[in-house]
Simulated scan of single mutants.
Amino acid sequence: MWALALGGFGIGTTEFVAMGLLPEIAASVGVSEPTAGHVVSAYAAGVVVGAPLIATIAARVPRRTLLVALMVAFTLGNAATVLAPNYGLLVASRFVAGLPHGAYFGVAALVAAHLAGPGRRAQAVALVMTGLSVANVVGVPAASWLGMALGWRSAFVLVAVIGAATVAALAAWVPSLSIPTTSVRIELGALKSARVWLTLATAVIGFGGVFAVYTYISTTLTDVAGVPKSLVPVALMLFGLGMVAGNMVGGRLADRAVVPAVFATVTALAVLLAVFVAAAHNPYTAFLLVFGLGMGCAAVGPALQVRLMDVAEDAQTLAASLHHAAFNLANAFGAWIGGVVIAAGLGYTAPAAVGVVLALAGVAVFAVSIRGRDWIRS
């Protein structure tokens, strides 16, 4: 389990560290900060493409072998980011680095749920996702500090080292498991379910607002809240601590009742985004709400993950992987819409205002996906 979480730690570090280093990346490759935000979107796009593609093609591959192969690809993709000589190749390298992300988390979630058994599935998934959360407490602030001190490329050197360590840990500690493999036909069968698509849409729309804010959090804190640049890594650490807390709370809520947990956590996210619009103008309240947004974001995850596994029936690998594809499509969508409203001159609090609308829309979409028996099962 901890070997699986180490992979999540590396993935979480590479996914979020670019957001805190956008000003440095933009200056280095000679583009504006909103344009540099496409680096974040490219990684997310890689997750969106790679999750269903790899989960489907590799349906018959033993889970341990697949996990190791995915982390090898992840390590090589991040090494390519370090060596990228210009903006175009940088964007391409981030896309490649994102390809194994969703499939890794999807397979890791299945392994965790298999080991935990009924009644503790969401908490097991949350434990694997703890690596992603801890990345925002330790990995992202450390990589951000390293990137600011030695140049942004050094942050991705650190990520590549974590990836290599994960490969070794998975090979040494993860045993062969009796999780049945499926087939391309069975996995693709999940795409026929309207409830699968609506649950994915809930994730994309509901999460989008958080990433609209977080992508540009560095400039929001320095220019709006008046936070010294040196304290931006502290804010990233607070976001990670919020994610750790959110994972714990979200996992317990989802094991009690999945459907009510989705409604409660996405609605709470809308409230937090609304408060952030005003809170961003003060350094103390801004830091508090950064913690809150991290908690709200992570709390939604376990419930949506288990919900997807339930509605996909036999197509477990694809469903689990699609959750992370949706999460990162929200990342790409949020980074894009945040850049649009900022470029339009609406200011750095505008992404949070848009995020409120998106989160409430996510609640509405999820409501459409519910049937009467879903409440009984939950």
Rank of each mutant, 00 (worst) to 15 (best):
A135D: 09
D255N: 02
Y104C: 02
A367C: 07
T349M: 12
F333A: 15
G301S: 13
V354K: 09
L188I: 05
L273F: 14
G117V: 00
W152V: 13
D223L: 10
L289I: 14
G362W: 03
F239R: 02
A112D: 08
L191Q: 07
T182I: 00
V61K: 06
A108S: 15
I376C: 00
L76T: 14
S176Y: 05
L200E: 14
G98A: 05
A112N: 05
A278F: 15
P85H: 04
L110Q: 13
G250T: 04
G206R: 06
P118E: 08
V232Q: 07
A113H: 01
L90V: 06
L99E: 07
V39N: 11
G151Q: 05
G8N: 02
V244P: 07
L318V: 09
A126W: 12
R63F: 02
L346R: 13
L76P: 08
G147S: 11
A44N: 06
L238G: 03
V167Y: 08
S32A: 12
L231Y: 08
T181W: 01
V249D: 05
A169N: 10
N282C: 10
A361M: 08
H101Y: 00
A51H: 04
M19R: 11
V82W: 05
A149K: 14
G37L: 07
S193K: 11
G131I: 08
A225N: 07
N136D: 13
P180D: 09
A51R: 04
G119E: 07
V128C: 05
S230V: 15
P302T: 01
P141I: 04
V365Q: 03
